[in-house]
Design a protein around this nucleic acid. Sequence first.
DNA 1: AAATTGAACTAAAAGGTTTTCGGAAACGTA
DNA 2: TACGTTTCCGAAAACCTTTTAGTTCAATTT
Lengths: 342, 342
Amino acid sequence: MAGRRSRAVTISDVASLAGVSIATVSKALNGKDNVRADTRQRVLEAAEQLSFRPNALAKNLLTGQSRTVGLLTSDSAGRFGIPVLLGAENAFGAGEMAVMLCDARGDVIREQHHIRMLLSRRVDGLIVVGESTNPRPSISRDLPVPVVYAYGPSDDADDVSFVPDDVGGAMLAVRHLLATGRRRIAHVTGPTDYKAAIDRAEGVRRELAEAGLEQAGETLFGAWSQRWGRQAAEMLLMAQPDLDAVFCGSDQIAAGFMETARERGRRLPADIAVIGYDNWEVLSAETRPLLTSVDPNLERLGHTAAQHLFAAIDGKVAPGIHTMPCRLVIRDSTAPPGPSPG
Amino acid sequence: MAGRRSRAVTISDVASLAGVSIATVSKALNGKDNVRADTRQRVLEAAEQLSFRPNALAKNLLTGQSRTVGLLTSDSAGRFGIPVLLGAENAFGAGEMAVMLCDARGDVIREQHHIRMLLSRRVDGLIVVGESTNPRPSISRDLPVPVVYAYGPSDDADDVSFVPDDVGGAMLAVRHLLATGRRRIAHVTGPTDYKAAIDRAEGVRRELAEAGLEQAGETLFGAWSQRWGRQAAEMLLMAQPDLDAVFCGSDQIAAGFMETARERGRRLPADIAVIGYDNWEVLSAETRPLLTSVDPNLERLGHTAAQHLFAAIDGKVAPGIHTMPCRLVIRDSTAPPGPSPG
DNA sequence: AAATTGAACTAAAAGGTTTTCGGAAACGTA
DNA sequence: TACGTTTCCGAAAACCTTTTAGTTCAATTT
């Protein structure tokens, strides 16, 4: 509370105390040449004594750069925005960049409002985090600063987007199932209006085709929820009694599937192997057995997007949609099949 | 991309185009007096044509206020920081405030670094979001701006903190169990080094004492996890065969408890009622039966904290730890007991 | 007709920093 | 002493906006 209402200490105060001009203070504090060692020392001591912090507003006004980026999200609450946000904040943390967080909550008006606000604050760049991997309207047109899209790509091919490789992630999962000896593989996933669901189904199709195998039944599209996982399990266990593996489009679906499969007396993973998606640890590390899951590496994606934004601020653009690889986190739910009860 | 590298348009450009002085432009755009209607119109058109956005840096430098608050968290990834953050961002969204997000990731050095950065950017205030409800070291000492602590309170009684009322939340839960006819109530919760666990246990004790009842066994402290919920269920069902209700310290514990209780043949909620804590919808809306849970109203807490920060910026301080009420979200897991299988 | 008023506008200052350029002092050389 | 060189420091401009204190000019009053 001390000094709450007192005027902030400026470079002039430091100059007075040190008995030099403000120019010298500036040079001394910024490590510039042409300042005698003992003068610099005096200045440093004065600055320390007054706990002087240069006014970034003034500096930024002068340089025209705010050393700030805007992070525009439609769904900060979502599980996907946050890791991206963290990765970005991470990448910035090293330098002197700051992140301004704006949540548009899916409202175009609010988004416009935030963009105007950020521009008037002269942010150096913008990261737009989608709430799904579905393409979203571009905002880059006529903006005076570079924009990078993360998770959900822009619908304009000239923009820069970073998205997880859902097709590749699904292929990883199926490949792992095949490698551990599974042959009758089903796929349960989310709604068809999610590009993520479509892409993952395509990955399954592609990898199975490559192995010359048929998929066990059509892909079951539903919701991303545990409930749908349970429901799908009922259907699948009935329709495909010789099923030996299920690849689920989300960890929640997988958790639901496993719950019902256990109840129906299937041994996991001995009878049926299960793979989830997202590697959402609160779930995948709590299921029984522990859930093998595709990790979309979102934090790294956010980090990369932020680094790319830096490059773009420096004028180096690499337009297009960049897909980032996923990794498979192997846990107990895909141990090789066998008669032992695990 | 258009004009990416061209100098930003300033008020002078607008003045030239409109054929007036910059002072007139300022007054016209800010709705001040003494500007003729047609002049104002001309200015507005010129500004529109150039898509002029006043440089907030310059304005802030002049007024000495940045219209920005810093949000300092140790755990943005956590389930608790995010809602608070959203509530705060929400409260600010109405005005022209912006939020700068900084994640210290529990590192004191990093926290100091962020504080210096925020101060040099002349933020108008700070919100510190704890990662648990345990008190945390105060940072307010000698800071030139007001600080409000949310979720985790400051250890300095002169600071302003907003925390959820864990004791009251637990009392709500137990009262509901009593009201629906339960009498043998057990409590399973997290580790003893969490104040939240201690407080909730205290709430249970207090409410049961008020009703003149004994708690069914000692409070079981463990982890916040589903696994611990399962483990505790094994113990409890053995040790307290006539148990008719369990209040769990988290939704995860509750989910684990329910899973095992079902496996052991208990009917939920007919035989045993279960209440969770946090009302984390991804869990509480997916359990079978749907989980009654104490909702700590975190978003509202964040909102209130932000509003209070506004007040503090205007010089109105109300020091102390303010506990915010929880609410009980009643779902199927606490339907009255009975012989029917539900 | 001269003086007063009021409206509409402008010049200039202020805000805190960095940077450029010029000046002064100290020193060495002739 | 006169001159050139080096080293260090300070004055002032620039960044862009808002606000204050005028200034101009026309309309109104005396």
